[in-house]
Design a protein around this nucleic acid. Structure first.
Lengths: 147, 147
DNA sequence: ATTCTTGCAAACGGTTTGCACATAC
DNA sequence: GTATGTGCAAACCGTTTGCAAGAAT
């Protein structure tokens, strides 16, 4: 579940003009090796396992900095807390209403047609699709327990 | 900007099994007559103009109740606070990164293709597309100020 | 009369901020 | 040596909750 060596993380950080610290390495590495779109708190818990003195504040600051320089994505849909993603390619998400899992999805979206003509002059920079529903696991639980 | 009489609001509330109060009427009416996808705070400020003794807590509780019974929609995208919409038809939104305006948009989205085969068993209930960018007004400001 | 709703204020939780100390460069 | 990052704790702010008084049915 790794695939990237410390060296690579270091050069990635440098490539984004970031100073390299153990905390940042640990945070980026943790995020990079997760598919769960973890929250700041989740990253904190994960990183803490190997780096017990890290503070939650640092995790918040670091994730925000990563996001600022475009190193990571921020997925903040209808889930109640911010969730992050180290894969910055344009893809979309399926969010489980039950367990809050966020699963990557692909799909194409056509240009928006505003209420008025065209899209009302809106300049689209990014499009994000969020599918809400139940993941495979929760769907089963949902069905078996009735309605 | 009205188009609906008090009587209509009353029957709409009743139709959703809600007790009718002046506060609820005012809140629903305010939301219904706005295109701005206002936040709870914004609804509060609006309603307060004609109903000065209303409390913010009531607005929160009421909007949530409306949402529960399906009377209104909750739009909580990358904007920092919850935003509501009295138009519950399936439509999407363009969110201005500058002024936080939310503008209705139409577009079709195809079924999601999960990372795995199909959509990995995900049962889609709702799909929401958020376009981020700059609205007509802010785009102009953005361009004229350079960068 | 009973149940639901309101208003108020306190609590909550995720996130941000200020500051002194430590670290990267 | 200087700028930047860290840890800690307090502040922040949108939102939720508990409860007593008030209104709807």
């Amino acid at each position: 579940m790794e695939g990237k060596k410390d060296k690579d993380f270091i050069s990635t950080l440098r490539a984004h003009g970031l100073q390299v610290t153990y905390q940042r390495l640990a945070i980026y590495q943790s995020l990079y090796s997760s598919l769960a779109h973890p929250s700041a708190e989740a990253v904190y818990q994960q990183v803490r396992k190997r780096f017990s003195m890290i503070s939650l504040g640092t995790v918040y600051k670091t994730l925000e900095k990563f996001y600022d320089v475009g190193l990571i994505d921020k997925v903040s849909p209808i889930t109640e807390v911010a969730r992050y993603d180290a894969r910055t390619g344009h893809h979309h998400h399926m969010v489980c209403l039950q367990c809050q899992a966020i699963i990557d999805a692909d799909c194409t979206v056509e240009e928006p047609k505003g209420a008025v003509s065209g899209n009302g002059g809106f300049h689209v920079l990014r499009r994000q699709v969020v599918f809400h529903g139940y993941c495979d696991k929760c769907k089963a639980a949902y069905v078996s327990s009735g309605s």
